[in-house]
Amino acid sequence: MSQPSTWPLPAGSSRVVLPLQLTRQLDQHPLTKHLYPVAYGHYVDALGHQVERQQHTDHLLIFCHRGRGWFRTHNASGSVEAGQLLLLPAGQAHAYAADHEQPWSIYWAHFRGSAAVQCSDFLSLSAQSPVLTLSRWRQLIPVVTDLLNLQTQRYQFSAAIVAASLLQRIIAELPRLTSAMQIPAGFDLRALERFMYDNSHRDISLDEFSEFAGLSRYHFSKKFKQITGSSPMRFFNQIKVKLACQLLDTTTYSIRQIGQQLGFDDPYYFSRLFKKTMGISPQYYRESSHMTHSQTNLLNPQQGR
């Protein structure tokens, strides 16, 4: 297998490499042998991400949803912008990297199968023109989310079969998403929520959320409030506080470090926001959580064993 890059994963990123034994099973199973993933993931703001391969045994899809990058093969070279997909067939030496000024955020998948070689023709791509522009790519976010959420079950064969079916669906959907049809006056809340979780380490503006949804600031805020009962920024901050609670429960990071991981440079602002949302300070939340856990272990001594 062409190993994925070992680029260090920042907050919000993920990488799944299926074990060799599992991919061999997928290569033999009637439901998956025509097309299945061997690795996949999501790199967020991938500054410094760069790969060069002379030997390439897998097919590789790279979809850029923010920022930009570049690629080079023997037959073509160019940039990959937000909303564009790059397909690199097996056997083709290549290089690619994130842009230094606007590093890309990408979904990617290494894949194989008896039908994998037909993907270029299916997507109307060629060695000279390996980039596809998707005008309605956000419709695929729920399927991509389901695929990424399988990472906790990646060593289970049943989950691997589901991963193969989701990758097949993603590729099957791509041609119809190239149409320049007008974006509907609304948005997929599930896709937007995934976007918020993926970018929980950043300080995102309302403009960026409305751009993701394909609406003006006014119509986006109005529609969001109608659906959720909350403003977009308040909803986003609630997600950050939820993630902060998880970090307070499971790590020994300082309050400042947790705030920085969630895009807050000012620890005092982070603490005020946390207290406004939870009713208590981050420090008191951590102390109360640890005290409750200790009391539970005293009452149920077998749990800690």
Rank of each mutant, 00 (worst) to 15 (best):
P4G: 04
P4Y: 02
S5V: 07
W7H: 09
W7F: 10
L9Y: 04
A11S: 13
A11F: 10
G12W: 03
G12T: 06
G12E: 03
S13E: 01
S14A: 13
S14R: 13
R15H: 06
V17H: 01
L18M: 05
P19K: 12
Q21W: 11
L26P: 02
L26S: 03
L26R: 02
D27F: 06
Q28N: 13
P30L: 09
H34L: 12
P37S: 08
V38P: 00
H42F: 04
Y43C: 08
V51K: 00
R53D: 05
Q54K: 15
H56A: 15
L60E: 08
L61I: 15
W70L: 08
N75G: 13
A76C: 11
A76S: 15
S77C: 10
G78Q: 04
V80M: 01
G83M: 03
P89I: 10
P89G: 08
G91E: 08
A93R: 15
A95C: 08
Y96M: 10
Y96G: 04
A97H: 03
A98F: 07
D99F: 02
H100F: 07
Q102K: 13
W104K: 10
S105R: 01
F111R: 07
S114F: 00
A115F: 07
V117L: 10
V117P: 06
V117S: 13
S120T: 14
D121W: 10
L123K: 04
L123Y: 01
S126K: 12
T133N: 07
Q139H: 13
L140Y: 01
I141H: 00
I141Y: 03
I141R: 02
V144Y: 06
T145A: 14
Q151C: 12
Y155S: 11
Q156Y: 04
S158Q: 11
A160F: 04
V162W: 00
A163K: 05
R169Y: 07
A172Y: 01
A172G: 14
L174W: 07
L177G: 06
S179R: 14
A180W: 06
M181N: 14
Q182N: 14
I183F: 06
I183Q: 15
P184K: 09
A185T: 13
R190L: 12
E193C: 09
R194N: 00
F195A: 02
N199Q: 07
S205M: 08
L206R: 09
F209C: 01
F209H: 03
S210W: 00
E211V: 14
G214N: 06
G214W: 02
G214T: 12
L215A: 00
Y218M: 15
K225I: 12
K225V: 12
Q226H: 12
T228S: 05
S231A: 14
S231F: 09
M233Y: 01
I239T: 15
I239W: 03
I239K: 07
K240N: 05
V241M: 02
L243T: 07
L243M: 12
Q246N: 08
L248I: 08
T251V: 08
S254I: 01
S254Q: 05
R256H: 09
R256D: 00
R256T: 13
Q257Y: 00
I258A: 01
Q260P: 02
Y269F: 08
Y269E: 11
F270H: 05
L273D: 02
K276V: 08
Y284W: 10
E287W: 00
T292F: 05
T292W: 05
H293V: 13
H293E: 11
S294V: 14
T296H: 11
Q303G: 07
R305E: 02
